[in-house]
Structures are given as structure tokens and as C-alpha cells.
Simulated assay, not measured.
Amino acid sequence: MPDLASEEKQRIRALLVDLLGGDQFTTRVLDDVSLREAGLSSNALVSLLVAMEDAFGFEWDDDVQPEVLRSIDSLAADVATLRN
């Protein structure tokens, strides 16, 4: 059985490719690297969060902790938790 977190990471990477118009960003950013430090803008992060809501079928809480939004790893872990 595939690792759920791995599937979530792949889907998040695919959303980033769609949002950013190519895979240049995702091919150079590791799963545990800060998305902000890697160069993802605030607008792009908000767009990613909205796209994730649509793709995964949930809504982010208003009080989501900043560390959840840090990296692909942390986003995928939170999505896996929300979906269980």
C-alpha cells in the first residue's frame, strides 16, 4: 500500500507545477525545505492553499499554525491528518 503522505506530497507538487506554470520550482525544492525561503511568494502560497482545499476537499482553519505551512512535508502531514 502506498504511503499516504507520499501521495499527498505528489499532489501538492503537481498543484505547484500548475500554479507556477512549470516544474522549475518543484524540481529544485526538497520536501522539507521552507517554501518561503525557497522563493514562494505570499500570493503563490495563498493560491496553493486554495488549490489544496479544492483538490483535497477540505477548508483550512483560520487558526492554522504557521509551521504547517512551512514545507511540502508539513503541508502533506497536515492534509493526511485532516483527511483521517
Rank of each mutant, 00 (worst) to 15 (best):
D61C: 06
G57Q: 09
D62S: 10
S47E: 14
R36K: 13
F25G: 11
F25P: 04
F25S: 05
L15I: 04
L48K: 08
S74R: 14
A5S: 13
S34C: 06
N84L: 09
E37T: 04
R36S: 08
A44S: 15
L45Y: 02
L35G: 05
G22K: 12
R83D: 09
L75G: 03
V29R: 09
E37V: 00
L45R: 10
S34F: 03
A77W: 01
D3F: 00
D73M: 00
V79S: 07
V68P: 05
A77N: 07
A38T: 06
A14W: 07
D73K: 04
S47D: 15
E53C: 03
L35N: 08
A80Y: 00
A76I: 08
L19V: 03
S74I: 01
Q10T: 11
V33N: 11
G22R: 07
L69Y: 05
T26I: 01
L20M: 15
R13E: 10
S6I: 06
N84G: 13
I12H: 02
R70H: 15
E37I: 02
Q65E: 15
W60K: 02
L48R: 07
A80Q: 12
S34R: 11
V17Y: 02
V46C: 08
D18Y: 05
W60M: 00
P2F: 05
E37S: 05
R83L: 14
I72T: 13
I72F: 03
E67V: 12
I12C: 06
L40T: 05
N43W: 03
S41T: 14
R70C: 05
M1N: 12
L30M: 11
L35I: 06
D61W: 00
R13P: 03
T26V: 14
L20P: 01
M52Q: 08
G22D: 04
E37H: 01
A55G: 02
V79W: 07
G22H: 02
L4E: 12
R28C: 09
A76Y: 09
E37A: 11
S34M: 06
V46R: 09
E67A: 08
Q10F: 04
Q10C: 06
Q24D: 15
A5Y: 03
